[in-house]
């Protein structure tokens, strides 16, 4: 595909693309249970082993394999990130288009609600929602989704307002095109590029927020693995078993780096001003 080729010929896009692909592979393996060991089986005799041939990233306090838990954790974190970003994209796009298209009072009311949501720091708002709804995977998905909805609403509303004033929208009105046709064909289709970039960047934030929630014990519940939960468990053993912290920490850091690099590359590639003029 054209876009994949463009990503791989873009400097940071290539690095970001490779990182994200590797993570996706790991996540899928983790979710399918294709890990070296069972991530929740406790090998009591092998507690707190440093990384070695059998346990590549060592074992934790209960004798569980860190590498396997990491794979399962990446799977878990990615699942939450993907679903929450999907939620935010869908809700944000619908709300943003509604605000731009309906205008007037709708616009005012919707955008003020979004302003209120944006006024809270992301993790605090997510905490609030999870505390009210109770911890768990699906509540984190909804909480993180709600937190990032206002950003998508803004990303959609601005360009949608300017597209709405373009002549091709006026032209469509003169044919008597229906609102839904204009919104989907003339507005949404032109918003694909900014949305793609936003989705990539939002995935990085969502991963971080999920890790934060799990770290605080409000996300994924033990014994299931998640990157934040693993970090949280490693706190007391930081000095005796540093591998418990290093591997999940690195995993979070590199994944976010990967998504950010990919997002930057997509922004360059999809920006029409950066594209070469048609011959």
């Amino acid at each position: 595909m054209r876009i994949l080729r463009a990503i791989f010929s873009h400097g940071s896009g290539r690095i970001g693309g490779i990182i994200v692909s590797v993570y996706l592979l790991v996540a899928i393996l983790g979710m399918l249970g294709l890990t070296p060991h069972n991530p929740i089986t406790q090998y009591r005799v092998d507690r707190l082993h440093a990384p070695n041939g059998a346990y590549w990233m060592g074992t934790d306090l209960f004798g569980r394999d860190v590498a396997s838990r990491l794979m399962a954790g990446v799977g878990q974190s990615f699942t939450v990130a993907f679903f929450s970003v999907a939620f935010a994209t869908l809700a944000g796009t619908v709300l943003g288009l509604a605000a731009a298209w309906l205008g007037r009072r709708w616009d005012g009311v919707l955008m003020r609600i979004m302003d209120v949501l944006l006024a809270f720091p992301a993790i605090l708002l997510a905490l609030l929602i999870v505390t009210v709804a109770g911890p768990g995977t699906w509540t984190s998905v909804v909480a993180i989704g709600i937190v990032y909805t206002p950003i998508f609403t803004r990303v959609v509303r601005g360009p949608a307002l300017s597209l709405k004033a373009r002549e091709f929208v006026d032209a469509a009105r003169t044919f008597g095109s229906s609102s839904s046709y204009i919104v989907t064909r003339h507005l949404l289709l032109n918003l694909v590029a900014p949305l793609t970039v936003q989705v990539t960047l939002a995935l990085a934030w969502a991963l971080l927020t999920e890790a934060g929630l799990s770290f605080l014990g409000l996300g994924t519940q033990p014994p299931a693995a998640s990157l934040g939960l693993m970090l949280s468990d490693s706190r007391n053993l930081m000095e005796t078993a540093p591998w418990l912290m290093i591997f999940p920490g690195l995993a979070i850091m590199i994944s976010i780096l990967g998504f950010n690099l990919l997002g930057d590359a997509l922004r360059d590639i999809l920006d029409p001003k950066m594209r070469r003029a048609p011959a």
Binding site: R166, E167, F168, D170, A171, R185, L189, N190, V192, P272
Partner: peptide, 12 residues
């Protein structure tokens, strides 16, 4: 319309 660059949706 006046502006032929603005009156055609570039994505269609």
């Amino acid at each position: 319309f006046q502006n032929p660059y603005a009156s055609l949706n570039p994505r269609l």
